[in-house]
Design a protein around this nucleic acid. Sequence first.
DNA 1: TACTGCGATAGTCAGAGAACGTCAGGCCGG
DNA 2: CCGGCCTGACGTTCTCTGACTATCGCAGTA
Lengths: 161, 161
Amino acid sequence: MACLTDDIERYLLRMLGEGVTLEIQRAEVADRFGCAPSQINYVLLTRFTPARGFFVESRRGGGGYIRVSRLPEDAWGEAGDLPEALDQATAEHHIARLVEARRLTPREGALLRAVVSRDVLNLPLPLRDRVRAAVLRAGIGGALRWQQEYANGVQRVGMEP
Amino acid sequence: MACLTDDIERYLLRMLGEGVTLEIQRAEVADRFGCAPSQINYVLLTRFTPARGFFVESRRGGGGYIRVSRLPEDAWGEAGDLPEALDQATAEHHIARLVEARRLTPREGALLRAVVSRDVLNLPLPLRDRVRAAVLRAGIGGALRWQQEYANGVQRVGMEP
DNA sequence: TACTGCGATAGTCAGAGAACGTCAGGCCGG
DNA sequence: CCGGCCTGACGTTCTCTGACTATCGCAGTA
């Protein structure tokens, strides 16, 4: 069963695709999907997170709105400032963001997602989240650093930047 | 003595076909066989193990599912029977071999090498080598599995809209 | 102007419901 | 009696709703 949350997520992503900022009315979207208005908050809370590269702002009252936009890439800080510990969901959000921004290939995303999974890092809990963060940082760093080395190598041979 | 577990295994294998990712609902399959839902977990645990080249993931809650996939023998190959524990040098050797064989891109190699490094998996020693092996297996599997899902999609079974 | 009340939004939170996971223990054939 | 099969009770996670709360703009009024 494709759940409502996933449907609404797809809908918003499609709307968002056409511009950098999307402005919606909560009640209008809820109506379109025949659900409670607070469902929209749930979708935004669980799917359009900062870790995934989204920014949400809103205003209440007459003429109120909810705005969803993508964070500019340079506001992310790459892998450098990921937190010391990461739960699985947040780690996957970070990966999704990097794939969407084409910093990682989808296959690299799948690789990393597998690697940070709960079952693979089979460790007791405060530790597991710390190792996951370290692994994710290293993985992202490893891939991006390779890119740089590769680019430099090519440049030495005389290609254009 | 056609036991239930064997029946369910056969059923899932038939659904799974070649190189397809299968998506099921635990309760639906349990119903079909008139058994307890946890029986499905037992089948997955004892028959669809990573050692046999299977991969199982799931999501709980409304709209939950269980996904089963298998890597084709030739893609999984030598990576499939990596030992239970791996020191860093051996792990890197395996990675190099897979890159050489074009199972992984050089960049994926760099990613994995970073991830299995001693400093990243900062754990006491008998444990570290075990986690490293698990991480490596998962990473390779994750990458190869993506390929397959991308090509063949997901086969959903049961429950129509 | 300043205040006040009202309608129109959106936010929060607890809780119900829908999946799946785990585990101790019963059962049964060899 | 041992090991594999199977279940049921209980735990965890995710979704969705409804009641209640907070905020905003505007119109009317002193």
